[in-house]
Nucleic acid binder design. Structure first.
Lengths: 118, 118
DNA sequence: CGGCATCCACTTGGATACTG
DNA sequence: CAGTATCCAAGTGGATGCCG
């Protein structure tokens, strides 16, 4: 996780990397977007909807929960059910995701659009 | 690289992930920050300063170059030398890195600072 | 149903020798 | 010196069985 071998990590680098690692990985973004668009979801629903293995889903949700981006709520139903949802705090990630979305779109133009305009 | 199995990747997700993958990995950020703070660097300098293996450095620089974030300049010196540096375009990444830095710092407070304020 | 344990495949990054 | 090829270690994600 924190394998920085130079003093690059000092001020700016560390904070940027913290943010980076929180949303990195194959499923973090997909999960947050799913909650954002469809609301609360149960464990099994996520497994089926996203076609993610339970082992991985469990780990991803735990990490998101540790970072206070999602909540885990146990329902006292006949079989047991657990609901996951994003927190209000998770919305603050918008200040990061929005610029990333915009830059990504511009970059696609920069790379693909101007491919042969040397 | 692009293993999105749901329609989550549609609009927003794709662009965000594009940006994410460009700056992900162990060395991308360190390299860009090194150029930013110390200016142009030769291949061997980077290997020694960062303690990165040549194989990995070569791959990382190629990827950054493909995304037009760094330039590669061959010098016609006695032994051969190659200089790498960031492009002006790379500076536009600031609109992404700055919010990431700020959110990362706030998040550190949110997680560590308020650890026992439930 | 939630989710952990086990086993496995693929990817990422490192060490090092070697070539132009 | 720059960069590649080879080999290898560790991490990440997937499949599946099992248990409470």
């Amino acid at each position: 996780m924190e394998h920085l071998n130079e003093k690059e990590c000092k001020s700016a680098g560390m904070a940027v990397r913290d943010t980076l690692e929180i949303i990195s990985g194959k499923w973090k973004l997909i999960l947050l977007l799913t909650f954002y668009k469809k609301g609360k979801r149960r464990f099994r629903e996520l497994v089926k909807e996203l076609n993610i293995s339970p082992r991985v889903l469990s780990k991803e949700l735990q990490e998101l929960e540790m970072n206070k981006l999602v909540t885990r709520t146990v329902r006292n139903t006949r079989p047991m059910t657990v609901e996951y949802d994003i927190t209000p705090y998770c919305r603050t990630l918008g200040s990061v995701l929005q610029p990333m979305k915009e830059w990504g779109e511009l970059h696609r133009q920069e790379i693909i659009g101007k491919k042969n305009s040397e």
